[in-house]
């Protein structure tokens, strides 16, 4: 019938490949990514009021990195890792969207990242 014209996609559940369609919400879904401790991303859209470190600075867990103003609140973003600041992508006054790359670090210890899993 009319079904034959439809281009079906493959959908795998428990090793079985089914012929089916994807719906809009499924196609638009965001894929999960393992948190990467080598980068700092914004967790809310907002303004960078202050950058507290420079590239090359040695940081420890708890070191203040920058001040983000979001939802009418100023938050000091602190490091969750120990290492050095490799690159800073923002400056005082930057307006950042959610999940924007703020800083990159070189870590003291090796950690598992998404690319290791892939």
């Amino acid at each position: 019938m009319e079904h034959e014209k439809i281009k079906y996609k493959t959908f795998i559940v428990d090793d079985v490949a089914y012929k089916t369609l994807y719906h809009t919400k499924y196609e638009k879904r965001e894929k999960y990514e393992l948190p990467n401790p080598k980068v700092l991303r914004s967790f809310l859209p907002g303004n960078i009021l202050k950058v507290l470190v420079k590239e090359g600075d040695v940081i420890k867990k708890g070191t203040g990195l920058c001040v983000l103003e979001a939802m009418k609140t100023e938050s000091v973003i602190r490091s969750t890792v120990s290492g050095t600041v490799a690159k800073i992508h923002v400056h005082k006054g930057s307006v950042v969207p959610n999940n924007a790359l703020l800083m990159e670090f070189d870590l003291d210890e090796e950690v598992v990242t998404q690319s290791d899993i892939d």
Partner: peptide, 11 residues
């Protein structure tokens, strides 16, 4: 079965 093979998900 026409969509996502009819699986049960959150929605």
């Amino acid at each position: 079965p026409l969509y996502l093979a009819g699986v049960l998900d959150c929605d």
